[in-house]
């Protein structure tokens, strides 16, 4: 029974085993659905030379952006990194390497990584700089690029509700990359808003089955909004 109790009670335990040079896959889209406390813990651990795979790299002073402050990221794999002045500075000075990856290809790389598919063909990026150096193939009259899958030493995700078995549900569009990221980590850590008793999550409504998740921690979240837009009510 204890083998299935994945709940940990400290951020130290949640990120135990993270070492210099590892690859960390992080869920989230912009600042939406990011595991804020796990990112803060990586900053606290001062782990260096990380390869971070995530759609974006946060903003200055929040989200994954805080890992740039002490130069903990060696390489960033992302689809869009335009929200971050420190990122720009480290990229131009050559301190930081970036591998820009189309958003759908990035999601599929994580999905494939978690599903044991080593690579896949996609039309995305054919004839563009993204395809340079990659195998291409014509299939049924259309050209495709071979894209390798991604796996991580760690995956860090944010979920809404979890149980101690590691079953996860996500809230609204904070789901984004989190379900794929969760499948692609050797150690997947879920930082969640609420931990409920087993059976409270309707089995057919679970987004990420607990088999993908090694650790669960209850977090508290600032949920900063990147572009606050409202209409008159």
């Amino acid at each position: 029974m204890a083998g299935f109790n994945k709940v940990v009670h400290s951020y130290e335990d949640a990120m135990a085993g993270l070492q210099d040079g590892m690859t960390v896959i992080a869920g989230g889209f912009g600042l939406c659905g990011i595991p804020e406390g796990l990112i803060a813990q990586i900053k606290k651990m001062k782990t260096k030379d990380l390869t971070v795979v995530s759609n974006n790299c946060g903003v200055d002073g929040f989200g994954l952006g805080i890992l740039l402050e002490d130069r903990q990221i060696k390489k960033m794999v992302a689809s869009y990194v335009g929200e971050n002045a420190l990122f720009e500075k480290q990229l131009l000075s050559g301190e930081l390497e970036v591998e820009l990856t189309p958003q759908g290809t990035l999601a599929e790389k994580m999905r494939a990584g978690g599903a044991g598919i080593p690579a896949f063909f996609t039309a995305t990026g054919y004839g563009t700089p993204v395809a340079e150096g990659k195998e291409t193939r014509e299939i049924n009259g259309r050209n495709y690029v071979l894209e390798p899958a991604i796996t991580g030493d760690f995956a860090i995700v944010r979920a809404w509700k979890a149980d101690r078995y590691g079953n996860l549900m996500f809230r609204h569009t904070s789901m984004n990359f989190n379900p794929m990221a969760a499948t692609a980590g050797k150690i997947t850590v879920a930082e969640v808003e609420e931990i409920v008793e087993p059976g409270e999550l309707e089995p057919s409504q679970i987004h990420t089955p607990g088999i993908y998740v090694q650790r669960v921690i209850k977090g508290s979240f600032e949920k900063r909004i990147e572009r606050r837009m409202v209409r008159q009510g």
Binding site: E108, M175, R228
Partner: peptide, 25 residues
């Protein structure tokens, strides 16, 4: 207003009745 409800431009947004929400993949 809900921080967990954004569009691809990272702006806060709403879902219409009959909307579906799903993963990036």
């Amino acid at each position: 207003l809900d921080a967990d409800m954004i569009n691809a431009g990272k702006e806060t947004v709403t879902a219409i009745k009959g909307a579906a929400i799903f993963s990036s993949a």
